[in-house]
Computed example of a mutant assay.
Amino acid sequence: MPQEQKPEEEVAMSLIEHLVELRGRLIRASIGVLLGLGVGVFLVLGPPHLVDVIIATFAPVNESYAPIQSVGTTESFTSYMTVSLTVGLILGMPVIVYQLLAFIVPGLTDKERRLIYISLPFVTLFFLGGVAFGWFITVPTAIRFLIGFSDSALIQTQPSLADFLGTITTLLLINGVVFELPIIIYVLAFIGVVTAKQLSSFRRFAVVIVVIVAAVITPTGDPINLMLLAIPMYLLYELGVILARFVPNRA
């Protein structure tokens, strides 16, 4: 008779299966980002020349010299690709979120899988809402604060291209991800991972965690940007709690 499989072998096989599944989902997510990257390259190199739009919108205006400088040999190329990749991440976010949820919550029923598919347009909508919030609120406030911090006549404000675009794209992506919070909370509540009651009782800890997370992910480290991230993040958490209350009771 064949020997019974040892528990260690079962664990090893289970781990290998999870790693294979993770690899497959990472490949699918990467394909979504690469397709978005192609669109981003077109927007950056062709009309509407997205990098020029960003510089004209947020860079300090000075008639004496160009507001942004490129000092490295590869700085222009890498900066353009950074903006293109940001567009790719924005467009590929529904694929990324679906693959993430499908991996961390295995064994989804057909009903739960349909819910995740239905939520994907809302994932895109909320992410774009976060990007818009960053474009009109977070980024202008952050740039004005950081560049205008010193009003010395002896300091010429002329950021480098890589630093300027890197700060803006990071802030936009962070805002987009933060705005996904209500949708993710609702989906997790629907599939039974969390409940509205648990989220409500966790509120006092959520405030602390939100501030810590905002401090960690704030690319500039200044209190203005921390506040601009922490306040919307907590309000979005509360919105997620409200949405979780509308989840139908599970059998």
Rank of each mutant, 00 (worst) to 15 (best):
F122N: 00
F122A: 11
F122Y: 10
V123D: 08
V123C: 09
V123M: 06
V123W: 03
T124F: 15
T124D: 06
L125C: 10
L125V: 13
L125P: 01
L125S: 09
L125R: 08
L125A: 15
F126T: 05
F126L: 12
F126H: 04
F126N: 04
F126V: 06
F127H: 10
F127G: 06
F127S: 09
F127K: 08
F127E: 07
F127P: 05
L128A: 14
L128S: 13
L128W: 10
L128F: 14
L128N: 10
G129D: 02
G129P: 10
G129Y: 07
G130Y: 05
G130H: 04
G130R: 09
V131K: 07
V131A: 08
V131W: 07
A132G: 11
A132C: 11
A132H: 04
A132T: 14
F133E: 06
G134V: 02
G134T: 01
G134R: 03
G134C: 02
G134I: 02
G134F: 04
G134S: 11
G134Y: 01
W135K: 01
W135M: 01
W135F: 14
W135D: 04
W135C: 02
W135V: 01
W135R: 06
W135N: 01
F136A: 04
F136S: 03
I137V: 15
I137Y: 11
I137D: 02
I137S: 11
T138R: 05
V139P: 00
V139Q: 02
V139H: 00
V139Y: 02
V139N: 03
V139F: 02
P140G: 10
P140T: 04
P140A: 11
P140V: 10
A142N: 03
A142S: 09
A142V: 04
I143D: 02
I143N: 07
R144L: 08
R144D: 14
F145L: 13
F145M: 12
L146M: 13
L146F: 08
L146P: 05
L146E: 00
I147E: 00
I147S: 03
I147N: 05
I147R: 00
I147L: 14
G148H: 12
F149V: 09
S150N: 15
S150C: 04
S150W: 03
S150K: 12
S150V: 14
S150M: 07
D151A: 11
D151L: 15
D151K: 12
D151I: 08
D151E: 14
S152N: 15
S152T: 10
S152L: 15
A153F: 12
A153T: 11
